[in-house]
């Protein structure tokens, strides 16, 4: 074990993947200079970049600022023998390549009757919570959950960032990785040897018996903090981190809610048609009779992200808003209307 940051763990996974398979290449804007800290030495962002020296310009390629062309070329390369990792830096930039994601990356395997494999990973960071304004703060993973054919990961810890990325690179299906800038500097002990976290398997971040909080991305540490706070008041909260949003570990979520009878879903994305909405619908459809209280979503509201720090910091789930939601579901009897929380 060694202490790694979330960002350093991504770099370590990329290095392992590059070492393991010569078909793996990294393309993206500014990858040669290790601007975003994942094409360097590993462990932490401050480590000097050496991917370029180690793997050469043939496998580490700076691209022009041409997201549609980059994503399409990565798809074509994946269909013909390479296993590209594409660094798209900011998640908001994915919109520039929407046609390629939806019409080529997601559909080609199916509509060509299985002739195409699409072993490609698209990494991007969600820069929300950092006062970067409306064009850089998006958390767009729910809209890609609506596109069959893509797999989607959203790691919340350094270990998961490393292990999930290895599985993503090894997958013969296209994987979009949504990484949270707010978590970049998070540190924990991570196995410095190779390991793989399987896609589609949730992690129980904290065990509990009274309430289930399903939390996504940077909402995971907030949910754990809320759970610890509520433990002092005698409420036992279970925190489930799906880690992979497609395919979603439905059974882990249903098992937990069947046990606790109460569900809070916390995520930094917009409210309408978010992952929280999907998970809420899943539980309502499958185990409605197990519920002792209405489901509550704690999400960002359906609005643009304002620039001013005094406004932005209130937009995403916090330990306080998650704790408030937990208090509601344990204090109120079931079937009584509950105002939705933001």
């Amino acid at each position: 074990m060694t202490v790694m940051s979330y960002l350093g763990a991504i770099g370590a996974a990329q290095r392992e993947a590059m070492d393991a398979d010569e078909r793996v290449i990294i393309i993206g804007e500014d990858v040669e200079a290790n601007v975003y800290g994942t094409t360097g030495g590993g462990k932490s962002r401050s480590d000097k970049g050496d991917f370029l020296q180690r793997y050469g310009k043939n496998r580490i390629r700076n691209t022009p600022i041409s997201e549609e062309g980059i994503v399409g070329a990565a798809a074509g390369a994946a269909m013909t023998g390479l296993r590209p990792i594409v660094d798209l830096s900011y998640s908001s930039f994915l919109y520039m390549a929407m046609d390629q994601f939806v019409n080529q990356v997601a559909k080609n395997r199916y509509m060509f009757g299985g002739q195409a494999s699409m072993p490609v990973v698209f990494r991007s960071a969600m820069f929300y919570g950092l006062n970067t304004g409306a064009h850089h703060s998006d958390r767009p993973y729910p809209m890609f959950m609506n596109v069959p054919g893509l797999k989607i990961i959203a790691p919340a810890t350094p270990a998961d960032a490393k292990g999930l990325l290895r599985s993503a690179v090894d997958s013969d299906d296209p994987v979009l990785s949504f990484e949270a800038c707010l978590l970049w500097s998070t540190k924990e002990d991570v196995d410095e040897n190779e390991f793989w976290v399987p896609l589609g398997v949730a992690r129980t971040a904290r065990e509990g018996t009274d309430v289930t909080v399903v939390a996504i991305s940077s909402s995971v540490p907030e949910a754990v903090a809320a759970a610890e706070e509520l433990a002092k008041e005698g409420v036992s909260v279970e925190v489930i981190d799906p880690r992979t949003l497609v395919p979603l570990d439905r059974n882990a979520i249903l098992r937990s809610v069947a046990k606790t009878g109460r569900l809070i879903v916390a995520e930094p994305a917009h409210r309408t048609c978010g992952a929280a909405a999907e998970i809420s619908a899943l539980v309502a459809e499958e185990i409605f009779d197990s519920l002792k209280a209405p489901i509550i979503r704690v999400t960002a509201p359906d609005m643009q992200i304002p620039f001013s720090p005094s406004l932005e910091k209130q937009m995403y789930p916090t330990r306080a808003t998650i704790a408030a939601a937990i208090r509601r579901v344990v204090d109120l009897p079931a079937l009584q209307p509950v105002a939705t929380a933001v």
Partner: peptide, 14 residues
């Protein structure tokens, strides 16, 4: 169009 471009990239790298 970029799909073919990516195939050309494969050929170049490989």
């Amino acid at each position: 169009i970029p799909i073919a471009n990516g195939a050309a990239l494969s050929s170049k790298v490989l």
